[in-house]
Computed example of a mutant assay.
Amino acid sequence: MPDIVLNELERDALTELVNIGVSRAAASLRKMVGGEVLLSVPSIEVIGHGRAATLIREREGGELVAVWQDFAGAFRGRALLIFPQANSLELVRAVVGEAMPAEEVADMEQEALAETGNVILNSCLATMANMLQGSLTMSLPQVMRGHGGELLGTSELSPEEGLVLFLYINFSVRDRSIRGYIAMVMDLPSLGALKQLVGDFIDRVMRDEVEHGA
């Protein structure tokens, strides 16, 4: 699979695209929570399902919560926003407010997580697709719980067929520090299509720099 591996320039470009996407997501979340929201994606890796599950398991010993959406178009797969359970409750409290009783927070957890995941995943993927001059459609958000391997598995992809575009993501919501992960599970043709789009994007940027520099 050497042709699927992202080189350093492609990884940097993709990281920048995703950071623009999460910046837009932060602006949307700021309206939801009525306070400061900071999001950043410090690193991106393309790894196998098993390695992605191991990375999460090494960092997070307990149960995880994920919001997932399938996407199709210029490239296809499943996008997941993954949190440790404790972080997800922190995020829900930041969204619904401190004054709400604990039992009501629990009742709203599913809805608040789905809406937050929808905002972040849609912003990331829509920004990526737009800047790569492609288009994507996305399914409605679903919430599930489990461990790394369970969350990353899909009915359509076997571990041999797909790779995971794995992004660490740092949140600061209402002064709460919340960590999480974005995973995009794609088959090899889709990852190849994404790599090609990123390469075309880099070519356009470099061409523009040359033209403006001249």
Rank of each mutant, 00 (worst) to 15 (best):
F171R: 06
R59P: 01
E36A: 10
E161S: 13
M108L: 15
G34N: 09
V164E: 00
Q133H: 14
E103F: 14
G77V: 00
K31C: 08
T116S: 03
L125G: 01
I44T: 14
R145C: 08
R204S: 10
A102L: 10
V5W: 04
E10M: 08
G213C: 03
R24K: 15
P159H: 13
V96G: 01
F171K: 01
N87P: 00
P101V: 01
L157F: 12
A86P: 02
G77P: 07
D12P: 00
A114S: 09
A193C: 03
V33D: 12
I47F: 04
D175W: 11
E111Y: 11
D3F: 08
L132H: 10
V210G: 06
L39S: 06
S123I: 07
G61K: 13
G134Q: 05
A193T: 06
L64P: 04
A66M: 12
G62H: 14
L81K: 10
I44Q: 07
S123Q: 05
I120S: 00
P84Y: 04
Q69L: 15
F166T: 11
P101R: 08
L188S: 10
S123W: 01
G153D: 09
G134Y: 07
S135G: 06
A52Y: 08
V65W: 01
V33K: 05
R145T: 15
L125W: 00
A102F: 14
A99C: 11
Y181A: 02
R207Q: 03
S177M: 12
S190N: 11
E150I: 15
G162Y: 02
F75C: 03
L188G: 07
G35E: 13
L38K: 10
E161L: 14
S172P: 02
F75Q: 04
A79V: 10
A183W: 02
